[in-house]
Simulated assay, not measured.
Amino acid sequence: MTIKKVSSIAKLEDLGRIQLSKSFFMRDFLYSEIANWYGVPNFPEHPDIAIRSAYRSPSVNQLGNEKGHNCASNEKNFASHIWDYPDEKGYGATTCIVIPSFFRAI
């Protein structure tokens, strides 16, 4: 499925329903505490790029950087958390994961 631009709830729902693997859908990788806290949308600006990892929109990443929430600048996160923008080497992706059986709250 190709989503050209997220311009409606229906298209955002379609994006979220893209199955990335046997166990994961795109919606599983769009969650962001920063986006939720500040009420900023966190979905790709260029969703027609192949989806490979967790994602931060440029506006969410910039806000996280400005507020000191452990986000690098947008330029440093291109081809990383902001995977729909290439860096000087091209496209890439980064994800942060938690393995529940190893996570222990202190």
Results as ranks from 00 to 15, higher is better:
Met1Tyr: 04
Met1Val: 08
Val6Ile: 15
Ser7Leu: 12
Ser7Ile: 14
Ala10Asp: 15
Ala10Arg: 14
Lys11Asp: 13
Asp14Trp: 01
Leu15Tyr: 07
Gly16Ala: 10
Ile18Lys: 08
Ser23Lys: 12
Met26Thr: 11
Met26Val: 15
Met26Pro: 00
Arg27Val: 07
Glu33Ile: 05
Ala35Thr: 02
Ala35Phe: 01
Trp37Ser: 05
Trp37Gly: 00
Glu45Arg: 14
Pro47Glu: 05
Asp48Val: 04
Ile51Met: 12
Arg52Asn: 09
Ser53Cys: 10
Ser53Asp: 12
Arg56Ala: 05
Pro58Gln: 02
Gln62Gly: 01
Leu63Phe: 06
Gly64Thr: 05
Asn65Thr: 06
Glu66Phe: 05
Asn70Lys: 11
Cys71Trp: 00
Ala72His: 08
Asn74Ser: 08
Asn74Trp: 03
Glu75Lys: 13
Lys76Ala: 09
Asn77Gly: 07
Asn77Arg: 14
Ser80Pro: 02
His81Pro: 01
Ile82Asn: 01
Glu88Ile: 12
Glu88Leu: 10
Gly90Glu: 09
Gly90Thr: 12
Gly92Arg: 11
Gly92Ala: 10
Ala93Arg: 02
Ala93Leu: 03
Ala93Asp: 07
Thr95Ile: 13
Cys96Met: 10
Cys96Trp: 07
Pro100Ser: 05
Arg104Asp: 06
Ile106Trp: 03
Ile106Ser: 12
